[in-house]
């Protein structure tokens, strides 16, 4: 295999990986973006993701319909989001800490109830083959696009548009930027945050169902390797912009595909670091892109993480 062929293989793998691996990051980061825009941070989305993955798989197994699984995963995500939103409404309760606690609880509960679902094969989400024009099987596979990826893309666009152009978007942004201003406008701040966190939980649950129902498409206890937590980092370097969340998720997916792709073309020394590429990349981007001198553009100023 020539050098050009090698490079093309790696690039194609990263492109394909970007589409395959990015969807859970995309959904969780959109959910987190909405939550944070309203001025709260929910670190518990990792637990929501894992519980959503388990629930989606279980429902798909019992009903035979993967889409019902996705819906169920979203609904349990709502429940987790609502718990977070409600508890953080109480005075003196720290949203970051509650998030960590819910992460532990969600993961533990998913492991507990997920035991019977490790072995059976549930119906998986179908994918849309868009690569029929190519006779290269790798290209065809890369363009086997999951409908959730497409939905996620349109969701990102819709959120981006809604934040700018709708009354709801204004309400959420105002709530996140200044509690006093929002109160002066007659906005029920707590309710907006509760709703934003609940809907954010829905997205995270759906993101989890992608893991168990699409790619890799199976439920096991090792399914999430911190995707839900990483999504929080993605939101920060996406500067709370849903379209940038999409880009960041894509980048992260591509970085995740780098390690296996390099090994497949025979470059395997130091594969531990290639495998850690998403984390190293994220840290590097944060260090370069963030600056303490000025407030982050787009950062909701009520957010505890930016204070």
């Amino acid at each position: 295999m020539g050098d050009e062929g090698t490079l093309a293989t790696v690039l194609l793998a990263m492109f394909a990986g970007a589409i395959r691996v990015s969807t859970p990051f995309l959904f969780v980061s959109l959910g987190e973006c909405l939550t944070e825009k309203a001025g709260r941070i929910n670190l518990g989305l990792e637990g929501t993701l894992v519980f959503g993955a388990m629930t989606g798989y279980a429902l798909s197994l019992h009903t035979g319909s993967p889409w019902l699984g996705v819906l169920a995963a979203g609904l349990v995500g709502c429940v987790f989001g609502a718990i977070h939103g409600y508890l953080c409404k109480l005075p003196k309760v720290n949203d970051i800490a509650i998030g960590i606690a819910l992460m532990l609880f969600g993961t533990g509960a998913a492991f507990f109830f997920g035991k019977p679902y490790i072995q059976p094969q549930a119906a998986r989400l179908p994918s849309i083959p868009l690569g029929g024009w190519s006779d290269n099987p790798a290209v065809q596979q890369a363009l086997e696009i999951n409908p959730l990826f497409i939905i996620g893309f349109f969701l990102a666009v819709a959120m981006w548009w809604a934040f700018r152009n709708t009354r709801w978007g204004l309400v959420v942004r105002t709530t996140g930027d200044s509690t006093p201003a929002a109160v002066a406008l007659g906005i029920d701040v707590d309710r907006v945050r509760l709703l934003a966190t609940t809907v954010g939980g829905f997205f995270a649950g759906v993101g989890g169902s992608f893991l168990s129902l699409s790619y890799p498409g199976s439920w096991s206890e090792g399914l999430s390797s911190g995707q839900g937590l990483m999504a929080v980092a993605l939101v920060i370097f996406a500067r709370w912009n849903p379209l940038a969340c999409f880009g960041a998720a894509i980048l992260f997916g591509a970085a995740g595909a780098l390690g296996p792709a390099l090994q497949s073309v025979g470059i395997s020394e130091g594969y531990h670091f290639f495998n850690a590429a998403p984390y190293i990349l994220t840290l590097a981007i944060l260090v370069v892109a963030v600056s303490p001198k000025r407030a982050l553009r787009g950062a909701p100023s009520e957010l505890s993480i930016t204070k």
Binding site: T9, L12, A13, A16, G17, R20, V21, P137, A138, Q141, L211, Y215, P216, G217, S218, S220, E221, G222, L223, S225, G256, A257, G259, P260, A261, Q263, S264, V265, G266, S268, Y271, H272, N275
Partner: peptide, 24 residues
């Protein structure tokens, strides 16, 4: 052709490794 995932259980990377091998 061997690909090491680095962990005993890491489903996403195992799927990626499988795809990379098939692509290769």
């Amino acid at each position: 052709q061997v690909i090491f995932t680095g962990e005993w259980s890491l489903p996403v990377r195992e799927a990626e490794a499988t795809n990379a091998l098939v692509n290769a």
